[in-house]
Design a protein around this nucleic acid. Structure first.
Length: 246
DNA sequence: AGGAGTGTTGTGGT
DNA sequence: CACCACAACACTCC
């Protein structure tokens, strides 16, 4: 479930929840008391990268699906207790499973910078480039996973973007030629929207060119599969097609 | 059966 | 203090 485009889909599905009052709330969440949500009107549902934000007058709840989180709308999962379940007076139900639920304070909520969210209308590529240039030692594989720069980008998008732009994951930001750095930023957003379209059509996986693949579709040599960078996440790359700038 | 993975956070060590 | 390795969380699929 986790990357930004999936949250974007969820936000759309939840559009009808805004303005509704919460009639019931329950779940095995420990960080908040679901009962506090009862009687609250949902003022807004937002996403920022991989965060789902549910705003009411009294509180803002942040949901993160991490690696395993899932949700159901107007249905439940057989034999599974939701982490958090919210039912509106209108009869709509949101069930959240295996996710991290937290309350955040108003200041934190207000401070969310949507210009860093690759799925947002407010996405600002210029700011992203500036952040990248400010960290010349930052590796490409780590840069794309940095949620303060590319909020919403996850490991799949990382691998696909680097393959598309033919950049080796261990390239440093300082060594990337300006047009490449620009492409990295632009493709992070572009691929995220391609991801969105493919996810909607249930054809995402078949469009992967690099992630979890064994062979380079361009030159047909085996991909290197290695955990790289500070983030130490799986990277799939072609040593021939993807140039290492360092 | 065992292991790995679309992710993040906290802890403890160096 | 910075950086790291590792554990924990919790679920599905191969």
């Amino acid at each position: 479930m986790p990357e930004g485009p999936s949250l974007y889909i969820l936000k759309e599905l939840l559009a009808g929840f805004a303005g509704q009052e919460i009639a019931r709330a329950s779940g095995n969440v420990r960080a908040i008391d679901p009962a506090r949500l009862v009687g609250q009107r949902i003022d807004a549902i937002h996403t920022w990268g991989k965060h789902l934000l549910i705003e009411t007058q009294a509180m803002v709840v942040r949901v993160h699906f991490l690696l395993f989180g899932t949700y159901r709308i107007n249905e439940g999962r057989e034999g599974k207790t939701p982490r958090l379940s919210i039912e509106t007076t209108g009869g709509d139900v949101l069930n959240l499973y295996a996710c991290q639920v937290r309350e955040i304070d108003r200041a934190t909520y207000t401070a969310y910078d949507f210009s860093a969210d690759v799925m947002s209308e407010a996405w600002d590529p210029k700011k992203a480039r500036k952040k990248l240039r400010a960290q010349p030692d930052l590796l490409a594989c780590d840069a794309l996973l940095d949620q303060d720069i590319f909020s919403g980008v996850g490991n799949i998008i990382k691998n696909e973007v680097l393959f598309r732009i033919r950049v080796h994951p261990l390239s440093t930001m300082g060594a990337l030629p300006a047009p490449k750095l620009r492409r990295l930023v632009d493709e992070a957003r572009q691929y995220s929207f391609d991801f969105l379209a493919w996810k909607r059509a249930y054809v995402l996986k078949q469009h992967w060119l690099a992630h979890a693949k064994r062979t380079c579709p361009r030159c047909h040599i085996p991909f290197v599969k290695q955990n790289l960078g500070k983030t130490n996440r799986r990277s799939f790359y072609c040593e021939r097609c993807q140039k290492r700038y360092a």
